[in-house]
């Protein structure tokens, strides 16, 4: 009898398996993210950073306009608040995969389990994503209470824009996670660098028209640009200053859907290829000491 005949047939990954991995990874991610710290202190850490980032912009606007540019302030507050999600998703996915490989050295064990890495990775990074949504809510709250931001939410527009937009951001994060697995050094810095570059081109805190024209194609190709614009319309009831604000709500939603529909399959394919390459090249248990 051939040796292989003795092996029990291995069933594929079921939805229940994926759900169990996802659920377990959420608990693990939360414990690691909060670093077992005091909940009160953790709340302060979570809130202080995004609030300070928004306050910097507020003071900049106040210094120049003496409180006259209310519309621009609203544009900035919403953009600054929503950008926490981009940092949360990208940072969460990349840090999770790198921490598990470099610091806790668990990546290879997760990969060899019958479960898939993908639901584990999503669950593991969810804590940071949730924290980022808390930061969004708090920044908007401060904007409304103290800075005169007038929210006129249109849920029929905002909810689909958020779901589709966050899907696009997750796609970028998944691509980044796979990419960072290939890098020998400084992989930790990539999410910050890429998120910083996207922050610059996506019209998060200033209109895209201010950018040099050579950067405009990049800005219009990024799902984050359309997500921010659609979210502003869903939250404030009007678009951004500048040319992108001239588009109709339907056009903005269409561009968001198209950019995300392109980004998601590309990101998933590249992630699968990166994982394949990582297995072949022995990168899953590589430690760079960085």
């Amino acid at each position: 009898m051939a040796v292989t005949d003795r092996a029990a047939p291995v069933r594929g990954l079921t939805l229940a398996d994926a759900w169990r991995s996802f659920r377990t990874a959420i608990g693990l991610g939360w414990a690691i993210e909060s670093n077992w710290s005091d909940p009160f202190l953790f709340a302060i850490y979570t809130v202080a950073k995004p609030l300070a980032a928004a306050l910097i912009l507020v003071v900049m606007v106040q210094v120049i306009t003496q409180g006259q540019a209310t519309e621009f302030l609203q544009f900035m507050i919403v953009g600054s608040a929503l950008w926490n999600v981009v940092f949360g998703v990208m940072g969460g996915l990349v840090q999770s995969i790198l921490e598990d490989r470099e610091r806790y050295r668990m990546m290879k064990y997760v990969v060899v389990t019958p479960s898939s890495l993908f639901p584990f990775l999503l669950g593991r990074s969810l804590a940071r994503v949730i924290v980022s949504f808390v930061a969004v809510a708090l920044t908007l709250l401060i904007g409304v209470v103290f800075l005169g931001v007038e929210l006129r939410p249109n849920l029929l527009y905002l909810v689909p824009a958020t779901l589709i937009g966050v899907l696009g951001v997750i796609a970028i994060g998944v691509f980044m996670a796979g990419w960072c697995l290939q890098l020998r050094q400084e992989a930790w810095s990539y999410p910050e660098a890429i998120a910083g570059a996207l922050y610059l081109v996506s019209g998060a805190i200033f209109p895209i028209d201010i950018l040099p024209s050579v950067v405009h194609p990049l800005a219009y190709a990024s799902p984050t640009t359309w997500w921010l614009e659609a979210s502003r319309r869903g939250l404030l009831g009007h678009g951004s200053p500048g040319s992108i604000g001239q588009l109709s709500d339907g056009q903005v939603m269409l561009f968001l859907v198209i950019s995300v529909a392109i980004a998601v399959p590309i990101a998933l394919s590249l992630f699968a290829w990166f994982m394949h390459r990582a297995r072949e090249s022995g990168l899953l248990d590589m430690t760079t000491g960085s």
Binding site: L57, M60, V61, V63, I64, T65, A69, F72, M76, Q185, E186, S189, E192, A193, G196, A197, Y199, L200, A204, I205, F206, P207, I210, L211
Partner: peptide
């Protein structure tokens, strides 16, 4: 690679704030 990231990251942040001031038509010294 350290040099690249340690220059790039502060520079990206600087650029974002420069463009905010440009959007606000702030005096050049800002």
């Amino acid at each position: 690679s350290w040099v690249f990231f340690e220059i790039l990251l502060p520079f990206l942040a600087v650029s974002a704030f420069v463009f905010v001031y440009r959007a606000l038509e702030a005096p050049e010294e800002f």
